[in-house]
Amino acid sequence: MARDKAPLLIVDQLTMRFGGLCAVDALDFTARGGEITALIGPNGAGKTTLFNCVTGFYRSCAGRIALARPDPDSPGAFRADWREELEELTRSTRRSARLEGGEIFLLERMADFEIVKRAGVARTFQNIRLFRGMTVLENLIVAQHNRLIGPALDLAGRLGFGAYRARERAAIETARFWLDRVGLIDRADEAAGALPYGAQRRLEIARAMATAPTLLCLDEPAAGLNPRESHELTALLLSLRDDHDVSILIIEHDMSVVMAISDHVVVLDHGVKIADGTARDIRQDEAVIKAYLGVADEADIAAMGA
């Protein structure tokens, strides 16, 4: 499946400074389509900052974040190498360019909501951000806002009449599908804030998936999960990659999860990339063991070896 391994997200020389603090320093990496790319590193390494730059929550100080989105209708038509078109797009002032079978975007030129809406990047948060006072189903319906709202002049639709009804039925079906997928279908009408912690984590992933993303960015999805739950999460993420054509960028501290699912691992420390490779490469990388795990942390080394 060579076409699947085409670059999806290319980050070039990305720099993000907060005053004197350089959180991300001239970072380069590439995430490929159809893969799970893990970002690991000690606390304060700049992982979440990188996420916020990619999803448009921060405006990066310098560098380029490029994303390709093959058309969902014609997979395979998109070319594997779009570097040339990317250079051309970078020289222009535009934010995106249409290619045969897809579209490429320069995310650093786009607002956060456009990145979700047009480029198809969805994300979850380290500290869960659900609409707590709304029901589980409503959370997934809000996620489909842009598909539901329809054309700008559809005034009847704005009030919930006319063509809106068909769109809403489709949205409910999508919601039903994802709720079923994460095992929350029976709790669809409950308030999201009333769910137990593990279910809230799953709901956040389902909500992100309801936006129909190309790239799913997960910020520590296994934090606070018990071993059984994190095992289920692993299975879910693999299935998202294999069955639903989603590429995943994941920040995770739980090494058993990272090692089990990652096709590709990027290690950050103090805003700089210190290693980049397959999970197997990373496991043996001296710099990683020294910088990230610390020599004393044997439990994690054991987990990596596992």
Partner: peptide
């Protein structure tokens, strides 16, 4: 109209905005 609005995307976006603005942005709500 307000009751209709609550059942339409715009009204749900209002409520989502009240609940969590950052999550709204992460879901593509303008």
């Amino acid at each position: 109209l307000t009751r209709r609005l609550r059942k339409a995307p715009l009204g749900r976006a209002f409520e989502a905005l009240r609940e969590d603005e950052i999550a709204c942005r992460s879901l593509g709500v303008d």
